[in-house]
């Protein structure tokens, strides 16, 4: 039994304590926006926010969490895709297949929350998520648009 705070709600789930948070989100809570890509903290497809920090949920057992930590998934980032990162992504058509994008967006959102006006070098260093379709340059442009353009986050 685990007690979690996910997207603003406290919930209890019946699951083995060593189950990775990713699979609790996907299988017990039906929050399938968070993706499985590697399972070993390499790709970032499973990125969620834990108390605002980008966290690779595939490599954290659910037993490491309690209801005091605020977990936010892509489904809870904004009620209507209005987060500046989501809006910038829409304006620039960032996603290709889109599979990596929930993790990419969560990583970007955490970055701009911590660093409201990241330089290009900071973006390149901080966002280590893998995108096999190759959207990296539009991701960089999207973060810059979200932080310096109209409707900027910072």
């Amino acid at each position: 039994m685990a007690k979690l705070n996910v997207n603003g709600r406290t919930i209890e789930v019946e699951v083995e304590g060593d189950t990775p948070l990713l699979w609790v989100l996907r299988e017990q809570l039906n929050l399938t926006g968070t993706k499985y890509g590697c399972g070993i903290a390499q790709c970032g497809a499973c990125t969620v926010h834990v108390d605002g920090a980008a966290t690779r949920s595939c490599s954290m057992p659910v037993s490491a969490f309690d209801e005091n930590q605020k977990i936010v998934t892509i489904e809870g980032l904004s009620p209507d895709s209005s987060h500046p990162i989501q809006q910038a992504w829409l304006a620039l058509d960032v996603p290709q297949c889109g599979f990596c994008q929930p993790g990419m967006i969560m990583a970007a959102a955490a970055l701009v929350a911590a660093t409201p006006r990241p330089t290009e070098a900071q973006i390149r260093e901080e966002i280590t998520n893998i995108c096999r379709c190759g959207t990296y340059n539009r991701v960089i442009a999207g973060i810059q648009r979200a932080t310096t353009g109209p409707g900027a986050a910072g």
Binding site: G33, K35, T73, E75, D93, P95, G98, I105
Partner: peptide
Amino acid sequence: PRLDTRAKLNGSQVYGMDLK
């Protein structure tokens, strides 16, 4: 703009892996 971008921004795009 692409016709399939919005669902890729909020986790609602269903991939095979997500099917139930």
